[in-house]
Design a protein around this nucleic acid. Structure first.
Length: 968
RNA sequence: GCCGGUGUGGCGGAAUUGGUAGACGCGCUGGAUUCAAAAUCCAGUUCUUUCGAGAGUGUGGGUUCGAUUCCCACCGCCGGUACCA
């Protein structure tokens, strides 16, 4: 038997496929373990080496759990709705379903080659009508429910209708858009359309006018996380706020539960913090300020500092606030109009970059409820329409922006907090004693907040209030490649849900996918959207719709009657380990937690959190490599463009064949060009990494048909000659400069796993990726080191195989050998549990080295090692397992268990320290007492030498650890 | 600014509840094998050194018999986020 990795890989991958080795059973008597990878969007670029990092890690966990007797659910699928496929369709005319199918096949093949133990029969595809039927069904359930805050769960709309008919809005405590006040009688008087509109105020999936991130260039609405710095993440086009009639999900109803649930899941602190920030809960007070001369009209504000009301000397409302027109007096009309024009002219990016305060006076006044003084009302863009009530009480003494605003507009500043006891405190720290505040004077801030809130309540001018930063989730896209909303509008424009038996509402076949000025392409599919009794909704859902709940579908992927059968979900419960990239940390995780909680309310799932434990793998960066160009100024003053190593300094004399003799000039005509990374060789020069392109790589370029090769050919045509240098072997090269960065097609540094896998075998590739370092940390990709892992695997192999023949003895193993084995079992078992895979690989290397030294060839040692390494190196392990005569697949063979008795030591090596500094080591018997250890240590001559002439003040002996002499 | 993470040889990284800092691998140096090379194997490899030893885990302090580990202050890097009232 030969260590021929390609043959071994192919043989076992085929066998596993035939035998259905990784089929998840429906046997519900075994304990379950669900380990899930975030499914990828199948892009045209294929997998790069960053993807498998998480896939391999989760695969190791899945395989070890399987061997430990768990029924393991380890599925994979594709998040196949999304913008890139649609954009590609617009660019090329290829239907998204076609390009998606091609990319999906490619991904699947690449994953299978990595020996990942997915049960492909369970694969899901979000753009498959059989799948999105259930996405539509779930969203339909959301539409048919409202949130009752009294019982803190979602309830059917029918129950709300009953309540409204009987009691109106009395006794109703619902998550809602605005506070409605209706009697039961009044409700009965409403027309069908009016009732429908009123229900929209309560539905968990509702249609309303909302300000959305509108991107004119893309012709679409973007999610917050698709917008970066006021520009679209894709394409970098300007994004503006635009009011549109849109479907939304009322995620705000679940804000508190989404926050609370974080305490019960095992996510990283960083991720929990991000989710908490995103939800942004803050406690404060609602306060009403009477508007002067407006006869009972009031302005509502939210403040976290009700204690500072005595310092409120003006009010600010958002330029988009509903009351702006009403509050603007004739005198101020011009000012306000000018300011509104100014605001309208500014893009989101301008507003964010703005540091100076701007605003305009409306001419109206509020009455400060505590001081009863008139305070002016301004509009200013620093007040956001969408946060709180879109209006603030400004306290210039205790808020930095308010202070700048007051200074600019000459508004009175009244100090209300004495911070002299807190010299280091900044304005926003909630510390100090109240002054100039009547009944609050002398109180500490904390106390004053409560007192002021209570007083507002007594006056009927406010109460304690909790506010959230999170906004309802806009769930409409005017795009083709997404799930159509299963909604039909009747003649009265009342939206009704498409009945479950008519789902899925399939996308109509189309060949033009452009969204024209914000109108969905589906508007043009008139045959599809026009029905006898109305018209179809033409908005589709965002990509997150399908990925919100896919982990549930894997449990029961082919069920045509339910999204998942109840007994099945009761068995699988939830995801035990979820692995994926940190870029999905906020939105995807938050939205799927929302849907899960909703389904929990409906008693469709048995748990209220979908993911027990979450692991975010770190990003793998790669060098972005540049070739430098320069000018060869020849002796006859001719200029020749050349490619030159970045290490060659200006003025260096050069001679290039066929060009001439001269020296190097680096001027503005010199341009750096990116070199596709796969044409580059990495070496090390003076302990520095060095990237070189060799002449043979360039010679081969002409025959290379890859896309990046074509790019590079064009680049090289722009300059003629190469100033080659010679390496030790006499090969010609040019030294390239580099910088580390994210892998991206446009930087030509995407590293495809296929080449490495083919060269070193799948198992080496898998173990090398794990060996790179802690899974959750970002790290640069480097191939240096993969040879070491390959060598290790072969050394491991050679423990079993001698001269291509299996050579294992049945002799009894020694105590030392058993200790090596069980030390390894213990380490690997614990470290898989801690998701510390790099240290597992090290442990295998250490054990292998030790066994080679011990010349161990004993079956009793080696056979368990095969079962232990199987999750990491599944192919090699399977080959060895079969050769050893194992029954069935190693991947169903028991995972070795540690026997502690082999780890007991007869003696222990103690570090002997003097004043905490270790100077030597000594061996003492394992059972030795403190006194025995101290005595024998003192008796040692080296110790005596260290102690000579010094007074021993204290001796610390920790049995099994160390000895420390404290000397004076 | 705020929140979170992180900082250890030439490099990736290891180090249990505070107890031998640098495991393992890469790279490098020397050697064996070879006609030679590749491959493989063996030895060495934190720095300084007067070869006795001394210093050392971003910086400065603290707690401790003892700190990479705990506490305080600061610095650098990475990620997230921001007129959030």
């Amino acid at each position: 038997m030969k260590f021929d990795v390609q043959t071994i890989d192919a043989k076992w991958q085929a066998t596993w496929n035939e035998n259905g080795t990784y089929k998840t059973t429906t046997d519900q008597t075994k304990p379950k373990y669900y380990v899930l990878d975030m499914f990828p969007y199948p892009s045209g670029a294929g997998l790069h080496v960053g993807h498998p990092l998480g896939y391999i890690a989760s695969d190791i966990v899945a395989r070890s759990k399987r061997q430990q007797g768990f029924n393991v659910l380890h599925p994979m699928g594709f998040d196949s709705f999304g913008l890139p496929a649609e954009q590609y369709a617009i660019d090329t005319g290829v239907h998204p379903s076609e390009s998606t199918a091609v990319n999906t096949e490619r991904y699947k093949e690449q994953m299978q080659r990595l020996g990942l133990s997915y049960d492909w029969d369970r694969a899901v595809n979000t753009s498959d009508p059989k799948y999105y039927k259930w996405t539509q069904w779930i969203v339909g359930r959301v539409f048919e429910h409202w949130y009752d805050k009294n019982v803190d769960k979602a309830r059917p709309i029918s129950e709300l209708v009953d309540h409204l008919a009987e009691h109106g809005t009395v006794g109703l405590n619902a998550a809602q858009g605005e506070q409605l006040n209706l009697t039961g009688h009044a409700w009965g008087e409403l027309s069908d359309k009016e009732q429908s509109d009123a229900l929209m105020n309560y539905r968990l999936a509702f249609r309303s006018v909302s300000y959305v991130n509108w991107c004119e260039a893309l012709g679409t609405v973007l999610a917050n996380d698709e917008v970066k710095d006021g520009k679209s993440e894709r394409g970098n086009h300007p994004v503006v706020q635009k009011p549109m009639l849109q479907w939304s999900l009322r995620i705000t109803a679940y804000a508190d539960r989404l926050l609370e649930g974080l305490d019960r899941v095992d996510y990283s602190d960083g991720l929990k913090a991000q989710q908490r920030n995103w939800i942004g809960r803050s406690t404060g007070a609602q306060a009403f300020f009477d508007i002067a001369d407006h006869d009972g009209k009031r302005l509502e504000v939210f403040t976290t500092r009700p204690d500072t009301i005595f310092g409120t000397t003006f009010m600010v409302i958002a330029p988009e606030h509903d009351h702006v027109a009403e509050l603007t007096t004739e005198d101020q009309l011009q000012d306000i109009q000018d300011y509104l024009a100014y605001v309208g002219s500014r893009s989101e990016i301008d507003r964010q970059a703005e540091t100076k305060v701007t605003g305009a006076f409306t001419g109206s006044y509020c009455i400060n409820p505590f001081t009863e003084k008139r305070v002016p009302i301004y509009i200013a863009e620093y007040v956001l329409k969408d946060y709180g009530t879109g209006a603030i009480m400004a306290v210039p003494s205790d808020d930095e922006r308010d202070m700048r605003f007051a200074e600019k507009f000459g508004i009175e500043i009244v100090n209300v907090i004495d911070k002299s006891d807190f010299p280091g405190a900044s304005l926003k720290d909630k510390v100090g004693k109240l002054i100039n505040s009547d009944f609050l004077n002398g109180m500490e801030v904390e106390e004053a907040i409560t007192a002021a809130t209570d007083r507002l309540g007594e006056m009927g001018r406010g109460k304690e209030q909790i506010n959230f930063r999170i906004r309802d989730l806009v769930f409409s896209r005017q795009r083709y490649w997404g799930e159509p909303w299963p909604i039909i509008y009747n003649e009265q424009d009342i939206p009704t849900l498409v009945p479950a038996e008519d789902l899925p509402v399939e996308l109509p076949p189309m060949d033009d996918f452009r969204a024209v000025s914000g109108v969905s392409p589906l508007e043009r599919a008139t045959e599809w959207n026009t029905l006898e009794n109305g018209r179809r909704e033409t908005d589709t859902m965002p990509a997150t719709a399908g990925s919100n709940w896919y982990y549930l579908r894997y449990m029961d992927p082919n069920n045509d009657g339910e999204f998942v059968a109840k007994d099945v979900v009761d068995y699988w419960q939830d995801v035990d380990l979820y692995v994926g990239g940190a870029e999905h940390a906020v939105s995807h995780i938050l939205y799927s937690r929302l849907i899960h909680k909703f389904l929990f309310d409906l008693d469709k799932v048995p748990t209220d959190e979908p993911y027990k434990k979450l692991l975010n793998q770190g990003m793998i960066g790669a060098p972005i490599v540049n070739i430098h160009s320069g000018v060869l100024l020849t002796e006859d003053h001719q200029r020749h463009a050349i490619w030159v190593s970045h290490t060659v300094a200006e003025g260096t004399p050069l001679e290039i064949d066929g060009v001439g003799k001269g020296h190097l000039v680096l001027d503005e005509s010199a341009l750096d060009r990116k070199v596709p990374l796969r044409m580059v060789e990495e070496t090390s020069v003076n302990n520095e990494p060095s990237y070189r392109i060799h002449k043979d790589a360039i010679d081969k370029l002409a025959a290379d048909e890859a896309q990046d090769a074509a790019y590079f050919r064009t680049v090289l045509e722009q300059a003629g000659a190469f100033n080659w240098e010679l390496d030790k072997e006499g090969r010609q090269f040019i030294e390239l400069s580099y910088a580390m960065g994210k892998m991206s097609k446009s930087k030509y540094n995407v590293i495809n796993p296929d080449d490495l896998r083919e060269r070193y075998g799948t198992d080496t590739f898998r173990m090398y990726e794990m060996f790179l370092g802690p899974i959750d940390q970002a790290k640069p990709w480097s191939v240096s080191g993969i040879d070491g892992v390959y060598r290790f695997l072969r050394r491991f192999w050679n423990l079993f195989v001698n001269e291509d023949e299996l050579s294992v003895s049945d002799k009894e193993s020694t105590k030392a050998e058993m200790k090596i084995l069980h030390t390894l079992i213990k380490k690997v078992t614990e470290d898989i549990d801690k998701l510390s895979f790099n240290t597992c690989v090290s442990a295998f290397m250490v054990a292998t080295n030790d066994l080679i030294k011990a010349k161990c060839d004993k079956r009793a040692i080696l056979e368990p090692m095969v079962r232990l390494i199987a999750p990491f190196a599944p192919h090699v392990a399977e080959e060895l397992f079969a050769a050893l005569g194992g029954q069935g697949s190693v991947h169903h063979a028991a995972f070795p268990e540690v026997e502690e008795k082999w780890l007991v030591e007869d003696s222990h090596t103690y570090p002997i320290a003097f004043n905490g500094k270790t100077r030597l080591t000594l061996d003492f018997p394992a059972g030795a007492s403190k006194q025995e250890i101290e005595d024998s240590a003192r008796a040692d001559e080296k110790v005596a030498a260290q102690l000579e002439g010094k007074t021993v003040r204290k001796v610390i002996v920790v049995p099994g650890r160390m000895v420390n002499f404290v000397v004076g």
